[in-house]
């Protein structure tokens, strides 16, 4: 079993930056993957809030956020980018 990529019980080491403010669980760095021609995939410990600062309904840890504008589940992706032919590169 490899433990190299796993944060220790005290969270990520100081070398990875300042400790984040988290609402639950052990600290793990947030990553945002800009999926080519698709959504933004967000992993890790993060809060997703509306303009009023209230947390948005969320049922899974890792989410895909719409960036083509066509989703009917915004802010989440519903796969519509494949139907509209959305391109992330100019």
């Amino acid at each position: 079993m490899s433990a190299e990529a796993v944060p220790g019980p005290d969270g990520p080491s100081g070398a990875e930056g300042p400790e984040r403010s988290l609402n639950s669980g052990a600290a793990s760095p947030v990553s945002v993957v800009a999926c080519p021609d698709g959504p933004l995939l967000i992993r890790g410990d993060f809060e997703l809030v509306g303009a009023d600062g209230q947390e948005l309904p969320r049922t899974r840890r890792t989410v895909a956020l719409c960036r083509c504008g066509a989703s009917v589940l915004k802010p989440y992706c519903d796969g519509s980018h494949k139907l509209t032919g959305f391109r992330s590169e100019p």
């Binding site: 993957v33 999926c35 698709g38 959504p39 895909a64 989703s71 589940l73 989440y76 992706c77 796969g79």
Partner: peptide, 9 residues
Amino acid sequence: VEADAVHEQ
């Protein structure tokens, strides 16, 4: 609809 838009990526 929502889950598999995440899963496919």
